[in-house]
């Protein structure tokens, strides 16, 4: 079944939409969730919440690429779940690893949440990513959006692990400089 047909099922409030989504994307979504949560039960919980979120958001949404849309939902839900479950301690998930990589680059201090404009920050990051060479951009997104392990992301980007590591390091520093130029204090 095509994405368009599945989306139509959602819009028709047909519960088969969830079954078809599960059939087609469960593995993909579990992978994203596991990268963040490092736990099978938590990943399943997160993916189930994703189906619910998809059911609640379509309509009005009508995503062009269903996989990307669902992946984004899973990512957000998994991060929330991670924070909820591991507020005190971090476990060895790829999300935790990603956070620690960023902490090497960014100032450690937390800024007041109310001052953060996530939307503006996201806009700046999107602008920065578009300015990157394709290899560096894909690597960055693979590592910090999908949170795939370094070895895996290096493999599907067609480079060695050590090259990927150094490229990510340079990209993080460039992003930091970019954000500073854009008026964010990092």
């Amino acid at each position: 079944m095509t994405d368009r047909e599945i989306v139509s099922l959602y819009h028709g409030r047909n519960e088969e939409a969830i079954l078809r989504t599960k059939e087609k994307y469960e593995k993909y979504l579990l992978k994203i969730a596991f990268n963040i949560l490092n736990s099978d039960p938590d990943s399943e919980e997160s993916v189930n919440d994703t189906y619910l979120a998809a059911w609640n958001s379509m309509p009005p949404h009508r995503p062009e690429v269903l996989s990307t849309y669902l992946g984004k939902l899973t990512r957000r839900i998994s991060i929330d779940l991670f924070r909820k479950k591991h507020r005190e301690k971090r476990v060895g998930s790829e999300y935790a690893m990603s956070l620690s990589e960023w902490e090497d680059c960014l100032a450690g201090g937390e800024m007041p949440e109310e001052t953060l404009e996530t939307g503006l920050l996201a806009e700046a990051i999107n602008k920065f990513l578009r300015s990157l060479p394709k290899d560096a951009r894909n690597l960055f997104i693979g590592r910090y959006y999908y949170m795939d392990p370094l070895q895996e992301v290096a493999a599907y980007c067609g480079m060695s692990e050590s090259k990927a590591k150094s490229l990510l390091f340079r990209t993080r520093n460039r992003l930091k400089e970019f954000l500073e130029k854009e008026g964010f204090s990092v």
């Binding site: 995503p63 996989s67 999300y95």
Partner: peptide
């Protein structure tokens, strides 16, 4: 604009443009 911690960056990445996410999704 004040920011940011590593978590905020990761949050902001949730709003990544879909075409870029999709491109990597295909690679994956």
């Amino acid at each position: 604009t004040s920011c940011t911690s590593s978590e905020k960056i990761m949050d902001a990445l949730s709003l990544l443009d879909e075409d870029m996410a999709e491109e990597v999704g295909r690679l994956r």
